[in-house]
Amino acid sequence: MTLLNTTNVVKRFGGLVAVNKMTFSVDEGRIVSIIGPNGAGKTTFFNSLTGIYKPEEGQITFKGQSLIGLRPDQVAATGIARTFQNIRLFGSMTVIENILVGMHIQLKQGGLDTIFRTRKFNQEENDAEQRAKDLMEYVGLKNVGNELARNLPYGGQRRIEIARALAANPTLLLLDEPTAGMNPNESEDAIKLFRRIRDDKGITILMIEHDMRVVMGISEHISVMDYGEKIAEGSPAEIRSNQRVIEAYLGRGAAVAHEQKA
């Protein structure tokens, strides 16, 4: 079943067409990647999906509901969570607090309950805290709940970002270069984590990734963007041998040479 569907999405910045007629879909329960050279418009496309940018043209539907015109918080409420290319944690909040912010949508906290700290309020708060701790453990963080997020090492911060995104109980998780800056071992762990997220929680994953080992290792479906357009899509094997993709990455000359060698 199609979870996310975009039709002819166009996003311009002045004269620059950053995303051009992007038609794209993600099936439920899949792990899907978008790849492409730097500046291909991948992150802009993500930002258009999540309501940070308003696309000039085209349709975006998620679970059959249009996302066009929704604010980022409304998009988040439909069940889309994301992480960022450059880690964007709330650095001077603790790890637990970061994850609790991720639960913002689900927490009710009535006004009077909050003032008088009723049993209901305490119950909800304890549950939320417990869930945050479980999520921390799920992504492989231990005993760092009360540390300030900015004091954690890079890999740890990446994990918090994922835990924070999971805290919102999303249906679709958008990961923007989740393994950027990781060494091969860390990437390997990350791949395992993403698989687990999909398998245990049934969360559909859409990611932008540069590390081809990660992309080819985990994706079930790959779309390739170049100059704002989708130039190819298919299974990892198909993409690996696609002429236009090789051209986009290596340049036409190199692609010809590659072909002659093959």
Binding site: I52, P72, D73, V75, R88, E97, L107, T114, A168
Partner: peptide
């Protein structure tokens, strides 16, 4: 420091775009 609204205020103070992506109405 003790409520969801307060956490949201602090989150918005630190990073408005990410806060909104966490479902916070900025």
């Amino acid at each position: 420091n003790g409520t969801k609204v307060g956490k949201a205020i602090r989150a918005v103070a630190q990073d408005r775009p990410s806060a909104s992506l966490m479902g916070i109405n900025v």
